[in-house]
């Protein structure tokens, strides 16, 4: 009886810690996403440069693109367990976001034509 109670306790303990870990990792993803959107907003130089090529509206829309790009970064790094914020990660988030905005913009042009 006591032995069974012990087993149930160990199992419950492991399951709740695991659930907490999964919950934390998902939350972490959302937090970092918010961070990266903020960094994107703050980078005036990037926005100024982009407005030369695309309409200001597109930049607002591009938040979705950033989200999409960020997902790739997050997916690959969370598979590695430790989510490191690195020069490389931010740098490529910004760079990829720029690419994605251009792709989205081109996509919308094609869409308008039809």
């Amino acid at each position: 009886m006591l032995k069974n109670l012990n087993k149930i306790f160990v199992l419950l303990f492991a399951v709740s810690l695991s659930a907490a870990f999964i919950w934390y990792q998902s939350g972490e993803a959302d937090d970092e996403l918010a961070d990266s959107v903020q960094i994107f907003d703050q980078s005036d130089a990037l926005v100024a440069q982009l407005t030369k090529v695309v309409a200001p509206d597109t930049i607002k829309v591009s938040r979705d693109s950033l989200r999409k790009i960020y997902r790739i970064m997050w997916t690959s790094k969370s598979s590695m367990m430790s989510p490191p914020k690195t020069v490389y990660v931010w740098d490529s988030v910004i760079r990829s976001a720029t690419d994605a905005i251009m792709l989205d913009y081109m996509d919308s042009l094609v869409f308008q034509k039809h």
Binding site: I22, A29, K68, R71
Partner: peptide, 28 residues
């Protein structure tokens, strides 16, 4: 391995919300 595992996510554009919990679970 990590590349193959993430291939559907890379190619098909599944949103973060779908993947976040699943990836953590899969690692565990």
């Amino acid at each position: 391995t990590v590349g193959v595992i993430n291939l559907p996510a890379f190619c098909l554009g599944f949103p973060l919300e779908t993947l976040a919990g699943f990836i953590a679970f899969r690692g565990l």
